[in-house]
Each structure stands twice: as C-alpha cells, then as structure tokens.
C-alpha cells in the first residue's frame, strides 16, 4: 500500500514537473517538437522548433499518450487489440480506438474535394480517434443511470458498468467525438479504460505511451546535461 501510494505520488509529481517543464497545459494540446524529442518521440531539433501539427498528447495516469496521425498507416491493429482484451470478440464498430471509420474519406467525407481531403482516397491522411479521458466527462455526466464512473482498477479511468447500463445511447450522443458506442449485439455501451494496449502494439508508434518513469529519467538527464 505504501509502495502504491509512493508510486502514485511520484507519477503525479513527475506529471506536474513535466507540465511545468514543458510549459504547456497538456490535454489534447499540440506538443512541440522539442518536447516530443525530450520524451523520445521526435528527431533532434532546436528548442524553438515549430509544433508537430499532426501530433497531440494526453496525460494519462500511466504516462503521456502521444498520437501522431502522420505515422498512422491505417492497419487497424489498435482496434483489434482493444476488441480482443475488452470484448473477447472482433468488432471494430465498438472498439474504443478507431481508425477504420475515417479510413476512406476522413472524418467528414466523401465531399466533392475527396481527392485532396483526408483519407485513403485523398491525401492518405489517417485520423485515428482516441478517448480524451476528459476531466469533465460528457459521457459520464449524461448517463441517466450513473453507469459511467472512475474505476480504481483502471487507474481511475472512467468505465461503463454494464450491469447498470440500459443501452440508451445518450453517452454516445453526448460525447463530442462519439467515442462510446452501443454494441448492436449486446445493447450495451463501452468506453476506453486507458489500458494503453493500442499503443503497446502500434506497428509505427503512431500511438505511443511514454511512461512517467521514462519522462522523469529524460528530464533528469536533460537537466544534468544542459541546465
């Protein structure tokens, strides 16, 4: 118990240090190249390098999730591992990380300019969607039966209790990105529990979780070498 608490504190401490250090309030913010470089996600660059437009980063309990859509090649293996671990069956429709949907024509397509817009038929850009783990959860707040709440078993990520879920679909509607999905086979909703498996197995590091441990080490070395 002491160990757990200590580690949590260390993680939180690193998280705060890191946010202070990077000078950004990370939470879907575009992250600069220098910051990505520090955490091993980008080539060596000057500190004044422009932000990597295609990369966004989110602070998760276990580390930084960096999602760089320029690296996403549309393999959809993230969907598969999510299904395998959380549904026990393969069903990308309900996967809590999504690539297939935006694969052809991007999130908005097909429009008249489809040949130049995002998507495989256009400029080839993929748009993987991940749960943002919002501080103020649209899904949780909208659920009429309080089926969505923080679960200590999942690092306090918000989780759907399928016993309570009545399959009304309000969570999916309320989420601005429609991440929770009703499974047409079970009638239940589900959402991302921040397990990081999608990133663990991504073949191109388009999704990558940098553990706070590693960030701590990188910060320490940075300071030793450059401070």
């Amino acid at each position: 118990m002491e160990q757990e608490k200590k580690r949590f504190f260390e993680n939180e401490q690193t998280r705060r240090d890191f946010l202070k250090f990077s000078g950004k309030s990370v939470g879907g913010a575009i992250v600069s190249l220098s910051v990505l470089n520090l955490i091993g996600c980008a080539p060596e660059e000057e500190a004044s390098a422009p932000p990597v437009e295609t990369a966004v980063a989110f602070a998760l309990p276990q580390g930084m999730l960096v999602a760089d859509k320029a690296k996403c090649t549309g393999c959809q293996r993230c969907e598969s591992i999510c299904n395998a671990l959380h549904d026990g069956k393969m069903q990308p429709y309900t996967a809590r990380v999504r690539v297939a949907e935006n694969y052809n024509y991007g999130p908005d397509g097909p429009k008249i300019n489809w040949a130049n817009a995002d998507g495989n038929f256009g400029n080839k850009m993929m748009n993987p969607e991940t749960c943002k783990q919002c501080r103020e959860p649209f899904c949780g707040n909208a659920c009429p039966v309080d089926a969505i709440s923080a679960d200590p078993a999942w690092n306090n990520a918000r989780v759907v209790d399928t016993e309570k879920c009545v399959g009304c679909g309000v969570c999916a509607e309320a989420c601005p990105w429609h991440m929770p999905r009703l499974d047409p086979e079970t009638g239940k909703s589900s959402k991302c529990v921040s397990c990081g498996a999608c990133a663990t197995y991504c073949p191109t590091d388009a999704l990558k979780v940098i553990p706070w441990e590693d960030i701590k080490t990188a910060m320490r070395r940075y300071k030793r070498n450059f401070a």
């Binding site: 395998a84 671990l85 959380h86 026990g88 069956k89 393969m90 069903q91 429709y93 086979e185 498996a197």
Partner: peptide
C-alpha cells in the same frame, strides 16, 4: 457485427 473467437483476449494477445 463481430467475428467471434473461442480463445480469450489474453490468449489472442
């Protein structure tokens, strides 16, 4: 819909 599998997610992993 889905493709069902007999094994567990862990085994798949």
């Amino acid at each position: 819909g889905s493709v069902e599998m007999a094994g567990t997610g862990k085994e798949w992993e």
